[in-house]
Design a protein around this nucleic acid. Sequence first.
DNA 1: TTCACCATGTAAGTTGTTACATGATTCC
DNA 2: GGAATCATGTAACAACTTACATGGTGAA
Lengths: 193, 193
Amino acid sequence: MSLRSALLVLLRIAPMSGYELQKLFSQSVGYVWHAPDSQIYPELRKMAEKGLIEAEEQTRGNVATRRVYHVTDSGEESFAEWMHTPLKYQRTRDAAHLKAAYLESVDHESRLAFLNDHIAHWASELQCWEDEIAKIDALTTPMLNRRLEVTDDEDREKTIAFKRFAYEGLAERARTEISWAKRGLELADRFAR
Amino acid sequence: MSLRSALLVLLRIAPMSGYELQKLFSQSVGYVWHAPDSQIYPELRKMAEKGLIEAEEQTRGNVATRRVYHVTDSGEESFAEWMHTPLKYQRTRDAAHLKAAYLESVDHESRLAFLNDHIAHWASELQCWEDEIAKIDALTTPMLNRRLEVTDDEDREKTIAFKRFAYEGLAERARTEISWAKRGLELADRFAR
DNA sequence: TTCACCATGTAAGTTGTTACATGATTCC
DNA sequence: GGAATCATGTAACAACTTACATGGTGAA
């Protein structure tokens, strides 16, 4: 049910269409949660059926319509419930570490390729999160600013602080992965002929 | 297809039945990869159909049978191919960080509960990996020892080193999550009344 | 004989991926 | 007129979860 929570979270910030949600999911927010449009539209329909959100149908031009969803009271309740419910931590499924455990069975070049890929992947994620943190500090995040507009003065610092905290955690994880893989490169060099 | 790879990896160490694989998946190995029996048995069947593994049927007592699978040449090839193929890093879906970003919307106690849960979860994972590393160092890991038995002397150090390296990465990640959540506790205290 | 463990599955449902499908609007 | 973007979906499949279902073996 976490796609539902992710959608609720975003719609709470501002009413949006499926298309806009999908765009967010393929940009910065997408690095925390991602879903393709084929999953978003049906889920929005289901949420509307359950009364968690409501659609306001807008006509674009003469024919096209767009559905802008907003969170209902029942949706707010559902969000609060999710926030108060302990997370189910599911079992790890970590292909990278599984592979790493068997690197002795491949040649030096393949080891380097694997480790450099790992570094490149996490470096790009890190970049994304550092950018996001910089934007939070500069107050140039559109989504955060929209949220702050409807936030009491006294709660603004808190809102910003936890947002930053979340992204810091993601950045730290990326750094951990990078430094691990770099140590792997050193290890690989030790076993190179 | 990574369940397939995980099964191949384990069967390469030693021929095993589905039951034994399932037990490994719910013990130490299960912290790198996990799958329930309902997924394992059908997958083994499919792999046997494709010729990646072969079953040796053993009768237990008078009636029961157990199928001990071993990796075929074709399975070895498939393993090698997997090792040489770049990983597809899929998009993050991280409920913990998603929730963390909205901690300002709940009360102090709920914040503490969330963060302490996070710490407890990762502390238990960390414990598991540190134990595993200690066992690797003491050469008391049954699976690793089985692998070492069929490994050339010159490759043993390498085999041990990469295994340790993999678990170190998992341990470091757990430590990162714990220290992040601890900073979260400090942050929560700052906003407590 | 009862309990822990060995052993193998099916079934239904949810979630996520990939590919396909369509058409409108806006700006250059 | 064409390209980028807006906008909404369906279909098929793959992966994973949860619950159910069955029965044998071995040791106290």
